[in-house]
Amino acid sequence: MKIAVLYGGVSKEREVSISSSKGIMEALKQNGHDVIGIDFHPNQLDEIINLQVDIVFIGLHGKFGEDGSIQGLLDMLNIPYVGSGVMASALAMDKFKAKQLFQTENIPVAKGNKYRMTKQTNIEAIIDDIHAHFTVPFVIKPNREGSTLGLTIVTEQAQTKAAIEKAIKSDEFILVEQFIKGKELTVPVMGKINEEQALPIIEIIPKNDLYDYESKYAAGGSEHIIPARINEELTEKIKQYAITAHQVLGCETYSRADFLLSDDGIPYILEVNTLPGMTPTSLFPDSAKKAKISYAEMIEHFIQLTVR
């Protein structure tokens, strides 16, 4: 097939997207497809409008890639693409909305609240409200952002204002959540609609105190333990939570759900990634490898699921 891979983009995750897409394009070529790469920019939409391909593989991350925007454009052009559609992409990107849906399925979520920050917002009133409802430590992060960009763990109230100012550089909506101490876990999900399966759960041990951008994408930034060191009953529960989260958002083909397993054994879902990273250090390919699925086989499986 003739396949276009969209990469780059204009979000803060541009470099991650380029790295992911390089691997995707190499795998597609290895599988015998005719591949073209497009460094996507919203000011050059004619490249998308005039596309003559069988299918698009979206290798973008963040704004305009993961939020439903490019999916909407491709839908209007009647161009098939790999992965989730407009609604699921937008919902998953909106962490607060996604959490509300997870709660309807009895998936544990951290206590949290969303605040809109505009030029007219009284930031001191927001700070007072946060302090009235959350005790330190708590987390402040952009509501619609990935790769822990703009995130702060507030350990004393004096840090709140700076944490808000950091978060609103990425999004006018901020999310404040209780801080949960525990194991970082992630669960890749893939398969036909309503027949999805979870791949082996990964336990993540970051080299830094926080599983931040550097820990995720720098070589040696984190250690991946596959399968995670948890009992079989908990493993199956978390896998089912990941599949249910994928389905309740309306995701398609593949996704990856991130969890924090608290010290008292409660797996809190953090978010679902509809376009998880596919870089050499990424989690999804690592889990697939443990399930005896090579990188190239994994990419081809996504293509075939989409075609079917």
Rank of each mutant, 00 (worst) to 15 (best):
D54F: 11
I168Q: 03
A257Y: 06
P285D: 05
V272N: 10
L261A: 10
P188K: 02
S282A: 14
E66H: 12
I107R: 03
Q197E: 15
K292H: 15
F96V: 07
V139Y: 07
I266P: 00
S19I: 05
L74M: 08
Q30R: 10
L74R: 05
I204N: 04
S170F: 15
E203I: 06
V5G: 04
A288G: 12
P206R: 00
I153E: 06
I230C: 05
D128C: 08
K161Y: 14
M93H: 10
F138I: 02
F57W: 08
M76L: 15
Q178L: 05
R256E: 02
L249Y: 07
L175A: 08
V272Q: 06
K95T: 03
S69C: 15
A27H: 10
Q197M: 15
E214I: 01
D171T: 08
P280F: 09
G265C: 08
K166C: 09
P206C: 00
A228L: 02
H301I: 10
K99V: 05
Q247E: 14
R256Y: 02
L283K: 08
I164P: 09
L305A: 11
E105H: 12
V189E: 02
G32T: 08
N43D: 15
G250I: 07
L149V: 15
V189P: 03
Y217E: 02
I303H: 08
T186A: 02
T279K: 10
K114W: 06
A125P: 03
K192V: 09
G221R: 01
K2V: 12
L199H: 01
A92T: 06
I58Q: 03
I168H: 03
Y7N: 13
K192C: 05
P206W: 00
Y213Q: 01
G37Y: 04
P142F: 06
N31D: 02
I18P: 04
A218D: 02
D75H: 13
A132K: 14
P142C: 08
N273R: 13
H41E: 12
D34H: 10
A288V: 09
A245K: 10
I205D: 02
T118H: 08
I49E: 15
I126C: 12
Q30S: 13
I126D: 04
L249H: 08
Q240S: 13
S69E: 13
T253Q: 14
T155I: 00
N122D: 15
D128S: 13
E66R: 14
K292A: 15
I48K: 11
T118D: 11
V53I: 11
K99C: 01
D212R: 00
G112V: 07
T281P: 01
A167K: 06
N143G: 01
I202R: 03
I48N: 12
S262C: 04
S19H: 05
E124S: 12
E13T: 04
